[in-house]
Design a protein around this nucleic acid. Structure first.
Length: 517
RNA sequence: CGGGAUGUAGCGUAGCCCGGUUAUCGCGCCUGGUUUGGGACCAGGAGGUCGCAAGUUCGAAUCUUGCCAUCCCGACCA
């Protein structure tokens, strides 16, 4: 913290003379993680072409490269949802206020961050030519809330869809945007509008709903670990951190390179809260009426933030091959005009072979940048594998393969090159995950006293596993003192008697603390 | 939403304190040429409502006020 402040203070002084040249040169480079982690992140998002700020406060423009990443994530998740029996539907962006407030706890939880539509028409301003004003005549009878989440509108709809146990379970997901009026925003991590999916299911029994909640948590964990290569801890939230309106909130927690935790996905067991609020009943086999049991679960574009902060380095993004928009880039190296067609021919051959294996590959033979520039550019954008092909390689029947994750370069025989790269992509995927997993393990530590707890948080960051007496008051006090929150009570946690880190009261298990995004 | 800072061409910036010809420089961009194995070079060229809006003034990038956006620090939150 101190060093960061010093850096910021000294920067303006170093802007003169020699500093200027450096800065110009540095503009192509990135702030390093050690220099300023959050600036590094911001630059990476923008320079890596993932997203930009927009003219609207707190809202971002997701650029084609970033959107391609989201599409890959979305497509895989969607497939996994469908494999587990879910179907997609779409519900409105607007929620009438009366519906929104039906489930009290949920409404209260979101009340402070809602955007509200109050009018439906503009008119020209008679006093100000060319300007528009809100037409006071066009006030809505009932305000519309722009959904911060869709439970209200969906459960209001489900009421009409569910009569009998034969209508259950109802397993629906929607891909949508939501709006939460955030005070402080950051690209991907917390924006006023974001993209996500929200699953909303209805079940005949409590047990079945709980199974669904945990199943979807497993789906999230599998996706995030196997596709995004980000290791996660599965757990349950404490009452303080629970979703408003839920009985239980399950989560996957990831650890970023600066030692801060990030909630990467949540799955809620909603009990009968929404069924009661919206009067959704069904007849069971004995023709007895009961309220249905509900779940909801979601992941958002925030996952992209997690991805960036888990893997990327001081040269730029590091994207796991399975979701990278571009898995391989081929850069030709020409020497003289006559070599171009020769290199092109071989390059096209390689590209065709890779495409036939389903590999996302680009041949970048554009003439407006030289090879060195392209190398740096694709490193910044996190393309997992780069192939360089020049006459020298052709003569030796090889290509130069560079891995983004290890920066290792090797000459590899052109014979069987496509199969080699297919295998290499898989190896990179595994390596990125292993590296992140090792980081997570190295940065999860036990604290057995208050002093040790505070020292670990301040000097090492990461997850701190410690005993807690189970009360909200203690959790709140710890948060006040250290800014650390209980990220979760890990599932399958080993029971281990101990004493609360703060109060010394008896505790039956350790929970995971961290400072979080 | 409170405190602090910032906003000049696509990017990074000089000029602002102390108002005064045609707003500085580098990168990038366009044209032509030479090049191409880790961010090439030469020559020529284009590009600006100085964040937006009012005000003060003979005159505003520069002074005043309001607004918008971004960053940092708090409170809030996925």
């Amino acid at each position: 913290m101190l060093t960061l402040k010093k850096l910021r203070v000294t920067m303006p002084e170093s802007q003169n003379d020699t500093g200027k040249k450096n800065r110009t040169y540095m503009s192509k480079e990135l702030t390093t993680r050690a220099e300023n982690y959050s600036e590094w992140y911001n630059e990476l998002v923008v320079k890596g072409q993932l997203a930009d700020h927009s003219a609207v406060r707190g809202c971002m423009v997701i650029k084609p490269y970033g959107y391609a990443l989201w599409e890959n994530m979305r497509d895989q998740l969607d497939k996994m949802f469908k494999e587990t029996g879910h179907v997609n539907a779409y519900f409105p962006l607007f929620v009438p206020k009366s519906l929104f407030e039906a489930e009290e706890k949920n409404a209260e939880g979101f009340a402070k961050e809602c955007a509200i539509v109050t009018h439906y028409r503009l008119k020209t301003d008679s006093e100000n030519k060319g300007k528009l004003i809100v037409d006071p005549e066009a006030k809505l009878e009932e305000e519309l809330i722009i959904r911060p989440t869709s439970e209200a509108i969906i459960w209001n709809t489900y009421k009409g869809w569910i009569q009998s146990y034969r209508d259950l379970p109802l397993l629906i997901n929607q891909w949508a945007n939501v709006v939460r009026w955030e005070m402080r925003t950051r690209l991907f991590l917390r924006t006023a509008e974001f993209l996500w999916q929200e699953g909303h299911t209805a079940h005949a029994t409590k047990e079945e709903a709980i199974i669904e909640t945990k199943k979807m948590l497993d789906v999230y964990a599998a996706f995030v670990e196997e596709w995004m290569a980000v290791p996660v801890i599965k757990g349950v939230k404490t009452a303080n951190e629970r979703f408003a309106g839920a009985e239980d909130t399950y989560c996957i927690e990831a650890l970023m390179q600066d030692g801060k935790a990030l909630q990467a996905g949540t799955s809620h067991f909603l009990g009968q809260n929404f069924a009661k609020a919206f009067d959704v009943k069904f007849s069971d086999k004995e023709n007895k009426l009961d309220y249905v049991w509900a779940t909801s679960w979601g992941v958002s574009t925030r996952l992209i933030g997690a991805l960036i902060m888990a893997h990327s380095d001081d040269q730029g993004l590091v994207l796991p091959p399975r979701i990278a928009p571009l898995q391989v880039v081929l850069v030709p190296i020409y020497k003289g005009e006559e070599s171009k067609p020769v290199i092109d021919a071989k390059a096209n051959e390689i590209v065709a072979a890779l495409k036939s294996l389903g590999i996302r590959v680009k041949y970048d033979d554009s003439d407006n940048a030289r090879p060195g520039w392209k190398f740096a550019e694709y490193e910044l954008k996190g393309v997992p594998v780069r192939i360089a092909l020049g006459m020298r390689d052709l003569e030796n029947n090889v290509v130069e393969i560079a891995r983004r994750d290890t920066k290792e370069k090797k000459s590899i025989s052109l014979d069987g090159i496509a199969a080699y790269i297919e295998k290499l992509l898989e190896e990179i995927q595994q390596n990125i995950f292993s590296k992140a997993k090792a980081f997570q393990q190295d940065n999860t530590r036990e604290a057995n006293s208050w002093d040790e707890f505070v020292t670990l948080l301040d000097e090492k960051a990461g997850f701190v596993s410690a005993h807690w007496d189970g009360t909200s008051e203690t959790e709140e006090k710890i948060k006040q003192e250290t800014k650390a929150t209980i990220r979760c009570i890990p599932l399958n946690n080993a029971l281990e008697p101990g004493k609360c880190i703060l109060t010394g009261k008896p505790s039956s298990q350790r929970v995971l603390f961290a400072r979080a995004y």
